[in-house]
Design a protein around this nucleic acid. Structure first.
Lengths: 255, 255
DNA sequence: CGCCGCTTTGAAGGCCTTCAATTGATGTGG
DNA sequence: CCACATCAATTGAAGGCCTTCAAAGCGGCG
């Protein structure tokens, strides 16, 4: 009966139990009975189409969102109009956590392609968290992930060259696609060159040039938005050039 | 009796109720009885001295930490040895949230000066959160703050010039000092030029030059680590140059 | 087909980095 | 108490990486 989809107020009831992303997404670590309780508050509206906004900067936080399929881009706009993309989100990832502090969203989130979203009413989710400690823990974990992911991007923007930034970006996508059962070496980018450039803090032209360089160097093949990685190792070495300061390397050398 | 300090296992029991930071810090929004329960799990060790490490990257997460006095710097080190400062922390701020995802800290945190720390055993804090919804909410709020603060730094690193970065950094300190009842225009930096440079993703020399420029322009006076801001407005305009894309300006213009 | 937006490629210029040297602050031993 | 050593911060000069400006390719879609 929990798997029976019921249309109510334009929202579709959905079942985390039947979703193959449940091990990545919010219900991770929940027992069967707990997941059913979560299912009771999850709903799904119609899919977003490319360019459609999930929430605007300044909107009050009513829901958190999990991506069922598709992808999103979040960005903040400063008072003087400068835009910074703060993240791209793939299926199974939780979106909207930026609004927890003030109760209003601090960034805008748009769909990069047709995207299906699970809605989690924040108030009810919060109540459920007091009831289900493992759900509370999972919420904290996902928030912690958001924080440490952001730290990684800070490292990227603060210390890395354009080449390293694009390499790290592609590797991040590669790993996340692999986690979701897709190819780690061939995928389609749902974001434009402009989006990538903005996210990485470099000019569009620089992104384009780096792609060309990678292509010429035989590291990958790019055709528009299709990327085929030919030499994953070389890409990885680009991000972590040496091992001289590697913790493990140091430890094993000391022994 | 709750205010009686008891020495036990080298840890001092402390009372949030008596702390003037309670409106900024974790106990914010808690009722008297709730705060007492929080007090039961908070302890304080001996103060850290300058350069001392609170926790290392890779350490398991046993406690979250709140700063009672002093200041901290958190940074991550990549495999190839590059360092990125991800934040400076002032009294009343919560530290250690980066470790929530994996249960191990993803950054290292050191004291910039003599610093007194309140320790919050994570397991007991988590239990208390299921018991006290307002504490759970406050935890989520603080995590959300960490996320949106990080987004602001991303905007800084992704779109701003060296001059704007230093201006924004000084304004951030100014605001946070003011929130804590200190002067917004005169304060001592607990971090070195190297720390500032690393945080802002620019070279030490660039920081030094920008300080000199600000000084020459009459915006502030710097003597070593003492900063006296003379023209707060000019500093603010440096970070938000125009109002052309300002939301409020747009709205009021439209009406 | 022909327009329009996205992407690519080329060339010049600028901001910041890197290298180098000096000055200033801090702390220790004679 | 001062000299000296050490480290942090400042200042100058040259060079590099990336940005900006400009224009041409290329695809998509009416």
């Amino acid at each position: 009966m929990a798997s029976d989809a019921v249309i109510s107020l334009n929202k579709l009831k959905v079942a985390c139990q039947d979703c193959r992303l449940s091990e990545i997404c919010l219900p991770r670590g929940l027992a069967q009975a707990e997941m059913e309780k979560l299912d009771n508050i999850v709903a799904r509206g119609r899919p977003l189409t490319r360019g459609e906004v999930l929430y605007h900067q300044g909107d009050s936080l009513n829901n958190l969102f999990a991506i069922h399929s598709g992808s999103l881009r979040s960005f903040i706009v400063s008072q003087d109009g400068r835009e910074q993309t703060v993240g791209f989100y793939l299926p199974g990832e939780l979106v909207g956590l930026d609004g927890l502090e003030k109760g209003t969203h601090t960034c805008t989130t748009v769909a990069l392609e047709t995207t299906s979203i699970c809605e989690l009413p924040f108030n009810r989710l919060q109540e459920l968290c007091t009831e289900l400690p493992s759900l509370q823990y999972q919420m904290l974990r996902l928030l912690g992930k958001e924080v440490s992911d952001d730290h990684d991007i800070l490292l990227l923007l603060g210390t890395r060259s354009a080449e390293e930034r694009l390499a790290a970006f592609l590797l991040s996508l590669s790993r996340r696609f692999a986690e979701r059962g897709f190819s780690a070496t061939e995928f389609n980018l749902s974001m434009s060159r402009h989006d990538i450039a903005n996210f990485l803090g470099i000019a569009v032209e620089t992104v384009s040039r780096q792609f060309s360089n990678f292509d010429k160097a035989g590291i990958l093949q790019v055709k528009h938005r299709n990327v085929k990685i030919l030499d994953l190792e070389k890409l990885e070495k680009m991000v972590e050039p040496g091992e001289k300061f590697n913790r493990k390397a140091k430890l094993s050398a000391a022994q």
